[in-house]
């Protein structure tokens, strides 16, 4: 464990808590893409299947349980509990255009041709594009609530910090995972436009409107 990965995990945790608090306090899921949240639930489910077979640490296991649990609660909030406030007309990204290519790529490009490893690779590739429905929805609605912007900033920062973690681990531990690094770069690059708007607008008290 290193500071970059720890801060990254905390940023990820914060993003999830911000989202749940926004939904619970405002009793609304307006502006939130249910499709992205479904993709995140798939990402965690396929990545953490080793939850019961390989123990890394208490921290690792408890975070995995938290991420899986909250991802399903979030999907439940959107499609059941606060369904009347779900804006399905603006959440129209065709996720099959993400899942099929990502599934095919995971089958072809992976570290080991085993079920668990292919599912882990699928999860890594899927996570890199899972935010697209949400960014697409923000561009369609033309703006995002500031709380949603904070959620996106924390979520985008987590994988950016993981890039620093991989640089650290390469030099100090000789650890290098090309699949995770490439997907992490793609994932972080997708947030660049949003990061720019967040820093130039939201931090000055303005609202975000995409496309800028």
């Amino acid at each position: 464990m290193n500071i970059f990965r720890l801060v990254g995990d905390m940023s990820h945790l914060l993003a999830i808590i911000i989202l749940l608090m926004k939904m619970w306090k405002s009793r609304s899921v307006a502006g939130i893409s249910g499709k992205s949240q479904i993709l995140f639930a798939i990402v965690f489910t396929t990545r953490y299947l080793d939850l019961f077979t390989s123990f890394v640490s208490i921290y690792n296991t408890s975070m995995k349980v938290f991420f899986i649990g909250t991802s399903y609660v979030t999907v439940y909030f959107i499609y059941q509990h606060f369904k009347p406030t779900y804006d399905s007309n603006h959440d129209t990204f065709r996720v099959e255009f993400l899942i099929v290519p990502v599934g095919g790529l995971a089958f072809l490009v992976n570290h080991e041709f085993s079920l668990l490893e292919i599912l882990w690779t699928f999860s890594i590739y899927l996570e890199s594009v899972a935010i697209l429905p949400q960014l697409f929805m923000v561009s369609k609605t033309g703006e995002a609530e500031s709380i949603t912007s904070h959620y996106l900033f924390a979520l985008g920062s987590y994988r950016a910090l993981y890039l620093l973690n991989w640089i650290y681990r390469y030099y100090f531990e000789g650890f290098f995972d090309l699949i995770a690094v490439v997907a992490g770069c793609v994932q972080t690059i997708l947030y660049c436009d949003f990061f720019y708007l967040y820093i130039t607008k939201v931090l000055k008290g303005k609202k975000i409107s995409l496309p800028a």
């Binding site: 890394v56 570290h111 993981y162 000789g174 995972d177």
Partner: peptide, 10 residues
């Protein structure tokens, strides 16, 4: 073969 200490990250 997965990298050393495979998938010890979240």
């Amino acid at each position: 073969q997965p990298p050393k200490d495979a998938h010890d990250e979240l």
